[in-house]
């Protein structure tokens, strides 16, 4: 038996509302909010980046796991906003946790599914008996080009999971991947902002891969949508995951804890992992959770987890997602937001 033994998250305290961005670009905020099911998004402080969010989330994951960080044998950080082009974020995270030096680490990149890629590898390494504990983090401080549709959703946050073979809070039941070469979104080397295929990002990209991964794991496990207590799909906005969920026979009570985008935005590599963390904050023992990520490029990783008796015992050892999301918020105007995100710079 392998699975999650601890989890933690970090959400910055700053927010910007859809109205504030729309005002600058002459867009209609009512249409945007309704069309995307999105109200506001998190914004990283000037001294936060993918590495700091990852470290702060990972510390809470280790706290909930109740382990000695020196026993973590593998650390994987998934992100599309690693602070360095060359020099791993994983080294910073491992050093800050006290996992060095007997630790294997790598940075992963696969648009919004880099976080679950790390979870996939971490779980399989523990299952193979190669390491005692493995840490996987999804962390991003993503940017959309000024005025682009992505500027309304691209946000910041991190979710971290310690995987192990005993003292589980959620047992891994099964995994399944679904991946094709689909050019729906990309960022070239040295480019500041990504480009995307507009409407092409819906049907042949997000919807096809999520649906493909869900059908594959349902087939493999013999489960059906109504067997799950909870489900989390990747959330590029608040509309896509709800549309696909409903079409596949899932219902609102199943995604109510995991759907965070309307007030968080899209935390990219942190998105579906953060939804899983928020669901673990609320789920009871012996409940089934379906997690399906999506990363442009494109692919989906599906996981089925079953919660254990230990989950309610450890969840209060660190702040819950809802508390990080709903309390101590500071709203920014577009000018301060542009400065924080280095969209405007002082001369050197």
């Amino acid at each position: 038996m392998v699975g999650i033994i601890g989890y933690g998250t970090q959400i910055p305290r700053f927010r910007i509302k859809v109205e504030e961005i729309a005002k600058v670009w002459g867009a209609d905020p009512v249409a945007l909010k309704r069309g995307l099911n999105l109200n506001e998004k998190s914004v990283p402080a000037p001294d936060e980046d993918c590495a700091t969010l990852a470290v702060n989330a990972a510390r809470d994951a280790v706290k909930r796991a109740g382990i000695n960080p020196a026993e973590i044998g593998a650390v994987y950080v998934g992100s599309e906003s690693h602070p360095y082009a060359v020099k791993p974020t994983g080294t910073i995270v491992s050093e800050a946790l006290g996992a060095c030096p007997f630790v294997h680490t790598a940075d992963l990149e696969f648009a919004c599914k880099a976080g679950t890629e790390g979870m996939f590898i971490a779980l399989q390494l523990v299952k193979a008996g190669a390491v005692k504990y493995a840490l996987a983090v999804g962390a991003d401080t993503s940017q959309g080009a000024p005025g682009d549709a992505l500027e309304y959703s691209a946000s910041a946050g991190a979710a971290a999971f310690v995987m192990g073979a005993d003292n589980l809070v959620a047992e891994l039941v099964d995994t399944h991947a679904y991946m094709t070469d689909t050019p729906d979104f990309w960022r070239r080397e040295h480019a500041h902002y990504p480009e995307h295929g507009g409407r092409f990002t819906g049907e042949p990209a997000y919807k096809k891969h999520i649906t493909g991964a869900v059908n594959a794991i349902l087939d493999k496990t013999g489960l059906k949508p109504s067997d799950f207590n909870y489900m989390i799909f990747h959330q590029p906005n608040g509309k896509f995951p709800v549309q696909v969920a409903k079409k596949m026979g899932f219902t609102e009570p199943q995604y109510r804890y995991g759907l965070l985008t309307p007030t968080l935005g899209n935390t990219y590599s942190g998105s579906s992992p953060m939804g899983l963390a928020a669901t673990l904050d609320e789920a009871g023992p012996d409940e089934l959770i379906l997690l399906v990520s999506y990363g442009s490029g494109a692919g989906s990783d599906a996981f089925v987890f079953k919660t254990t008796e230990r989950l309610p015992e450890i969840r209060d050892l660190a702040p819950k997602v809802k508390k990080q999301l709903d309390t101590n918020k500071t709203y920014l105007e577009y000018g301060a937001y542009a400065k924080f995100r280095r969209k405007i710079l002082k001369p050197e």
């Binding site: 959400i11 590495a51 700091t52 470290v55 800050a96 702040p319 101590n328």
Partner: peptide, 25 residues
């Protein structure tokens, strides 16, 4: 854990502990 500063646009990024108000998050 926060970013302290960096040595310009291409230089090393320096991280450190910083303090924040303790709001339980």
């Amino acid at each position: 854990f926060r970013r302290m500063n960096d040595e310009g646009k291409t230089g090393m990024i320096m991280y450190s502990y910083k303090f924040v108000p303790d709001n339980g998050i």
